[in-house]
Simulated scan of single mutants.
Amino acid sequence: MKKIAIIGGGIVGATAAYLLSKEPGYAVTLFDQETGQATKAAAGIISPWLSKRRNQKWYALASDGAHFIAQLAQETGMSPQTYLQSGTIVTRKDPQALDALEALAHERRQSVPMMGKIERLTRTQIKERMPLVTADLQGVFISGGARIDGQRFVADLLKLSQQNGSQIWHEKVMLKNDQTVQTTHQDLTFDVILLCAGAGVNELLAPLGYEVTVHPQKGQLIELKVPTYPEDQYAPVLMPEGEKDFMPIGNGRLIIGATHENEPEFDLEFTQEAFDELVASAQRMDANIHKSDLLATRVGTRAFTDDFSPFFGWLPENSHVLVASGLGSSGLTTGPLVAKLMTTMLTQQTSYANYQKDIETYLHKKE
């Protein structure tokens, strides 16, 4: 029986725990300090196919990740409140840019069937699907796009993992060496340790003599109370050009977000500046929104690299530590697949070069 430690209970760690808990021969213990998770503060949109990014490795990871997370949601019987293929609407202000977006959608649909139906929508058609929207918008609808409640998704996976025998410890831990996790009261030894702690990997790897070029990014979003309308629980997600994502989630609730702030680093205080920015963006989509409509706020810390690419794999020159980080704002899309690939590395020798650069691009031994 191989003893596996997972440090970090966000989307990557929770998925890894669930996947390993189903396999014979593994005893899984997950450690999570439960603060600052990017997963809990993410807007939760699974629709990478029309991204402006030119990084083909990232696109392959995100596109395949969208497919895997749909499989995972179906396999585990997740509710529509947790994962829903609601469709996404991506807008462009310039008609020629909208033409190019529609052409890109049809081009990529040829190799990605799960994108589903592609439609060009007028202002009236957007209004029919999203009655809250008062802005003059035109866009492209992708029926295979989805929304996900990261907090619910993780909770469901951890519950299933525990039912399969995994242990969950809620505390901050450190690495004493490459096989020893130091808790508040004792040291625990494992055969393999998976580091899935986002921007916290730098602190965790410091005792082993490694430096990681990964940076924290603060993300803030808001939830607003809005008028209900028929089928609002199944409304598509609006991804308006130059604005924050606009996500009705049913029962008169609307999520707006999220911000991308590099300076505050690990600060988890919700700010007035973010609130004003998010509300203003929401009001440009729906002129009937007021600041008094606020229901809740969320704050989390993402991890990003200098080239905005995720990385994962074995720690160089080490056979006991697997690490993943740098998922950035696409963590809910790429995280489950990253977890799956990490778990396969326990039995297969592969670098998954189609999805990422060499891991030594992002971490190295201190001199």
Rank of each mutant, 00 (worst) to 15 (best):
P113E: 06
L337M: 08
L101G: 06
Q110Y: 02
T35W: 13
K366W: 06
K2C: 09
D245I: 11
D32P: 14
A280C: 11
D191E: 06
Q167R: 09
A206G: 01
V338E: 08
G313I: 04
I168T: 03
N354E: 08
A135D: 10
I359K: 01
N164W: 03
E277V: 15
G219K: 06
Q162S: 12
P240Q: 08
I89R: 03
L20M: 06
A42H: 03
T347K: 13
T213M: 04
M342S: 01
A199K: 05
F153N: 15
V299D: 02
A38Q: 13
V112H: 06
D267T: 00
A38M: 10
V279E: 15
T180I: 01
H260R: 08
L315V: 07
R54H: 13
Y210F: 13
G25L: 06
Y210M: 14
H364M: 13
V154Q: 04
G10Y: 15
T189G: 05
A206S: 02
G13Y: 05
T271S: 11
F246P: 02
D306V: 05
E23F: 06
E223D: 12
M342P: 00
G335H: 10
Q96N: 05
T361G: 04
I6F: 06
Q217P: 09
E34R: 15
Q217D: 13
R92K: 11
G313L: 03
W49N: 01
K225Q: 11
L194I: 14
T124D: 12
L61N: 03
A206R: 00
M174N: 07
G250V: 04
L194P: 12
E23L: 15
S47L: 09
C196M: 08
A105P: 00
A235M: 03
V181C: 05
L294I: 15
Y362K: 00
D232G: 05
R53D: 15
F312W: 14
I142E: 13
M78V: 12
G209A: 03
G326L: 07
S51Y: 13
Q74D: 03
P113R: 05
